[in-house]
């Protein structure tokens, strides 16, 4: 009897899980028809939001699951973006190749950073990632001859000149990355990763090589960050430190992930789109805008530490 009951419970749990799926499908469908109504300007804002969504999801895999705080998501993004931009600008390489090279460079740079620092205990990993951003930022300024320095660099090729086409690219990219990252987070490997993040000693005692799994999570995060960084460059047509690498951009990504819901992956995307949208909406307020967003984030962290999606999921579970 108990077994039957448990089976039913399990089914119900699955159903809830698939309800999340249906909600996600619905949201994507709505997003897909938005170009019918929205202005070119609004579409542009959403497109940027979608790329930020990928940044935030990649970050959540590392923080929400592996339990490692990467204060420098823009290090990985910047490596991908600038590698792609330089190859396109200086050597005229086609966009797909540039994007792929961006991924490889983010992965290599990320591993060079992570292999020594993930072995360190405590907050060192976070500090290393933070310093890495400053290093990259200053490196770009120093080697202005290749990178365009503080002014930035334009790329001759862009994804598309049409705002609607660009919107499709952004949305499709977000959906594909979201499906992969969400799937990973719910897989057996995702479970091991969560175990490694929550209690590394226990995970090791259960026979899991924690460093290996965290390194893998970091690599995946690097691949998606680098790819999204490269795509964003070919969407905007320029690469600049201020829009891709600056610490404040990294902070925004972190805020987006926390706002949307740590450990949910999809929440990070929701948070990013929301944050970019609200930021654009409040842009006329200038300083007040940053203040309002920061205050809102603080409130969410204090009162809904699970974030918006995390809170929604939890509430439904409780019912």
């Amino acid at each position: 009897m108990t077994v039957n009951l448990d089976l039913i419970k399990e089914r119900m749990r699955r159903l809830l899980g698939s309800r999340l799926l249906w909600v996600a499908v619905l949201v994507v469908c709505i997003a897909a028809v938005l170009p019918l109504w929205l202005s070119v300007y609004a579409l542009g804002v959403l497109t940027a939001g979608y790329y930020f969504g990928v940044f935030a999801m990649a970050w959540d895999l590392l923080f929400g699951f592996a339990g490692e705080v990467n204060f420098g998501p823009t290090f990985l993004i910047g490596l991908g973006a600038y590698t792609a931009a330089i190859l396109n600008n200086k050597y005229g390489l086609a966009i797909p190749w540039c994007a792929m090279a961006g991924v490889v460079s983010a992965l290599i740079g990320g591993l060079l950073l992570a292999i020594p620092s993930l072995r360190l205990r405590g907050p060192y990993f976070g500090l290393v990632t933070l310093v890495a951003v400053l290093l990259l930022q200053n490196g770009i300024v120093i080697f202005a001859g290749i990178t365009g320095g503080e002014i930035g660099m334009t790329v001759p090729d862009v994804l598309s000149l049409s705002a609607v086409t660009n919107y499709w690219y952004g949305l499709a990219f977000l959906v594909v990355c979201g499906v992969i990252l969400f799937g990973l987070s719910r897989s057996a490997v995702g479970l091991i990763l969560q175990a490694s993040g929550q209690d590394p000693i226990e995970a090791q005692a259960l026979g899991f090589n924690v460093t290996k799994h965290k390194l893998m999570a970091f690599s995946i995060s690097a691949v998606f960050s680098g790819m999204a960084g490269a795509m964003l460059v070919f969407y905007m047509g320029t690469a600049s430190v201020g829009t891709l690498i600056d610490i404040s951009i990294g902070v925004q990504i972190i805020i987006a992930a926390v706002l949307g819901g740590r450990r949910t992956i999809l929440g990070a995307a929701v948070g990013a789109v929301l944050l970019i949208g609200v930021g654009e909406f409040l842009r006329p307020l200038v300083q007040l805008n940053t203040f309002a967003v920061s205050a809102l984030t603080l409130a969410v962290i204090l009162f809904f530490p699970d974030g918006l999606l995390g809170y929604a999921l939890r509430k439904r579970e409780a019912k």
């Binding site: 799937g183 990973l184 897989s187 057996a188 490997v189 479970l191 091991i192 969560q194 175990a195 929550q198 209690d199 259960l206 026979g207 899991f208 090589n209 290996k212 799994h213 893998m216 450990r263």
Partner: peptide
């Protein structure tokens, strides 16, 4: 594991230390 069910906690102990076994 605080966010997983009792069953998932037990299942975890059965998993191989593999990066590639998704299911």
């Amino acid at each position: 594991l605080r966010r997983q069910t009792v069953l998932e906690n037990i299942k975890l102990a059965f998993l191989p230390d593999s990066l590639w076994q998704l299911v």
